[in-house]
């Protein structure tokens, strides 16, 4: 077994340079196609999400790209939007903290959704859920990123145009999340809705467990530290 594996590993570098560049090109093409597929998902959510998972039209790489773009959009929105619309205290903002405070709940919610739905015959694997959720972020990126630029050309009185488009992007995203989960798990709308609520509760439990774990870890560490101090004290 191990021999076979090492053999296959060795076989890879043995491939010719041209075939390697060819496979890279194929990967690249598939990646670009899956990025472009985000547009299709956005406009045809029912078919789009089904094919995304079941016809393997999406790639994890594209999903990562969307998530990163989403985080970047969020941060750029805070930093670059005209101060007439967003007055973020830029002097206090930590970019990585800001990104983390979005990415972490995102991952935890995906995890909670997977943990809950997998018990109630949800068809989606964690990878599928993550991918669908990332693809659901596409309207946010596509609308909000240009709006950062547009906001700098608008005055305060013309702000309704700006705020309407922002809310459209968010509503669109929520809609896509809903449809995405429905298609990924092959649920009906009612069940999806219930599991959205259950997911939030699950996320709360996960966060609670994380907090308990770290506080216990801290207690344990301080126990051993004080024991060490006691021993040193006695020895002296």
């Amino acid at each position: 077994m191990s021999i076979a594996r090492s053999a296959s590993k060795k076989a890879k570098p043995a491939k010719s340079a041209s075939s390697r560049s060819e496979s890279r090109k194929a990967w690249w093409n598939r990646y670009l196609a899956s990025l472009k597929y985000g547009l299709h998902v956005m406009t045809h959510p029912f078919d789009g999400f089904w094919d995304l998972i079941h016809e393997k039209r999406g790639t994890l790489a594209a999903a990562h790209t969307f998530l990163i773009l989403f985080l970047l959009t969020r941060v750029m929105k805070l930093m670059l939007t005209s101060f007439q619309f967003i007055s973020a205290p830029t002097q206090y903002i930590n970019v990585f903290e800001e990104m983390g405070s979005l990415a972490l709940p995102f991952i935890i919610l995906c995890l909670a959704n997977w943990a809950m739905t997998t018990l109630f015959d949800g068809k989606g694997r964690f990878k599928d859920i993550y991918m669908a959720m990332c693809y659901a972020l596409v309207p946010y990126i596509l609308i909000q990123l240009p709006m950062i630029f547009v906001s700098n050309m608008l005055t305060f009185e013309e702000g309704s145009f700006y705020s309407v488009l922002l809310s459209v992007s968010v509503i669109w995203c929520v809609f896509l999340v809903f449809i995405g989960l429905m298609e990924v798990h092959d649920y009906g709308p009612g069940k999806t809705f219930i599991f959205l609520i259950v997911t939030v509760l699950g996320a709360a439990v996960i966060i609670f467990l994380i907090l308990v774990f770290f506080s216990l870890l801290g207690d344990a560490a301080s126990y051993f530290i004080s024991m060490y101090r006691e021993i040193i004290f006695r020895l002296n």
Binding site: F83, Q84, S87, M153, T155, F156, E157
Partner: peptide, 18 residues
């Protein structure tokens, strides 16, 4: 106006500038 965080007046100045 940006220093003063005065949106209305900033908008007024910006409109003319634009």
């Amino acid at each position: 106006f940006k220093l003063a965080h005065d949106r209305e007046n900033y908008g007024r100045a910006f409109k003319l500038y634009r």
